[in-house]
Simulated scan of single mutants.
Amino acid sequence: MDAQDKLKREYENKSIYTAGFYADPDNDLQNRQKLFDTLKSLVMNQEADTPFALQIMLTNSEINIMPLGLVNLDELKEYESKKRVTHGLQNQNDSLPLVIQYSPHTDGGKIIKKMVGSVQELFTNFNQQIEIIWQTVKELMQANFATLTAIENDLITDSHDVYKEYLATFSKMTSTELKEQLGFRIAKDELAQFSAYMADMHEVQAIVLSSGSFVNRELLEKNSFTTMMSDNIRRSTLFWVLDNTFYEIYYYFYMSNSNEKLHKRLQHLRQDLIVNMRNDAFHRAQEMTAKQSQNVDFNEYFTDIFIPVAEQIIAEINKFKD
Rank of each mutant, 00 (worst) to 15 (best):
N45T: 15
M57V: 07
N27W: 04
E287V: 14
Q267A: 10
A206P: 05
N153F: 04
Y247S: 05
G212N: 01
K114A: 08
Q205P: 09
K77C: 11
E10T: 12
E221S: 07
L98N: 07
K222A: 11
T86D: 08
T169R: 13
L167F: 09
E10S: 12
Y163M: 14
L262Q: 09
A143I: 15
T106N: 10
L39S: 08
D297V: 11
K264V: 05
H268I: 08
N295K: 12
D5G: 08
F253G: 08
I65Y: 01
E177I: 05
Q33E: 14
Q267I: 05
S171G: 07
P51I: 11
R9K: 11
E139S: 10
E131T: 01
T176G: 10
N295M: 09
I186A: 06
L242N: 01
P25F: 06
Y251E: 02
S195W: 09
D24Q: 05
A53H: 12
D243R: 06
I133D: 07
R235P: 01
M57K: 13
L96D: 07
L182E: 06
N153L: 02
P97D: 01
N216H: 09
Q92C: 07
S103A: 13
V309I: 15
T149M: 13
Q101L: 00
S224P: 04
V204H: 09
K319C: 02
K319M: 07
I112A: 01
K222P: 04
A285T: 06
D24A: 02
F306L: 11
H268Q: 14
Q90E: 12
L76C: 03
A150G: 09
T106W: 06
N13A: 10
L96A: 00
K34T: 10
T59K: 08
T124F: 04
L73N: 02
L39P: 06
T174C: 12
F253V: 10
T59D: 13
S256P: 02
A281P: 04
K319L: 13
L242T: 03
G109Q: 04
Q135L: 15
V99L: 14
I111V: 14
V85N: 13
A53T: 14
M141Y: 06
N27L: 03
N299H: 02
F246A: 03
S293L: 14
I132V: 12
G117W: 13
R84C: 00
D2F: 02
L182I: 08
L191S: 03
F246T: 01
L262W: 10
L98Y: 10
N144Q: 11
N318L: 03
W240C: 02
R235S: 05
N216T: 07
D161L: 13
N276D: 15
H105P: 04
N13S: 12
L269N: 14
V215F: 05
R217K: 05
L209H: 00
Q33G: 09
L220N: 10
D243C: 02
S41A: 06
L54Y: 06
Y166V: 12
T303Q: 07
A290V: 04
E12S: 05
I156Y: 00
Q205D: 15
D304S: 12
V162D: 10
I305G: 01
R284I: 01
M44S: 15
K110P: 00
D297P: 08
Q92T: 13
E300C: 01
F126H: 04
V296I: 15
S61P: 03
K14Y: 09
K164V: 05
